[in-house]
Amino acid sequence: MQHERPTGPVPASALTLSDALSGEAVAGRPALDVAPRPAFNLREIGDDFVRGVWRENGVFKQMLGLCPALAVTTTAVNGMAMGLATLAVMVASSSSVSIIRNWIPGSVRIPSFIVIIATFVTVVDLFLNAFAHDVHKTLGLFIPLIVVNCIVLGRADAFAARRSLPRAIADALGVGVGFTLALIALGAVRELLGMGSVFGISLFGDAYPPFLLFLLPPGAFIALGLMLAGGTYLAALSARGN
């Protein structure tokens, strides 16, 4: 499961939003094939799922969807809640987009997708408010802002709009799970350093002097930066070991 990471400066193309929206965010990867295929291929579907979870992880590899990733991850639980809300929106909107993909003319593609995504975001927003009120209060503004999470629109436009329903669902699930795991990881690191606990369970007892910086805004940037550096370092180590 070790994949090569670029160790040099990441090319400019790996960072911009337009690339995410056009579906080619990872430099040097061959373009996704657009040709029609037999409808149901289990291996392909599995691959669609796995690719989103790790190889093309939105947060760690493509630096997308960072606003919610940095803002709500003061604890692992908050990160998980945000991740699951986004996952639900992704699966619903990617499957809708895939179902209607042949009826939407190219010129109104993006507006239609935005309407679809905004609809599901509002549904999630309303249902969380009604049945998980505390979660809704914690995530606050960042629930409606799922609409402008570039990962959601990016996957709908670059993948679901050109693929069969099962593949679109697999991709949305994969990318959504990848996003959720990334938020849990970032939340766990910040919670561990900032409060000495993970998922609310104290690991060191009162002996741990909390490193508050990691709960504050600067700590979010720094924690993610350190995690990326750590990942690069480990990848380099294992490459040397081989």
Partner: peptide, 21 residues
């Protein structure tokens, strides 16, 4: 080496954010 690319940009942004505090 480990910080090249996005990592150092994020840490820089963090320090900037610290300054704004």
């Amino acid at each position: 080496r480990a910080f090249q690319g996005n990592a150092i940009v994020l840490v820089t942004a963090g320090i900037l954010s610290l300054a704004f505090m």
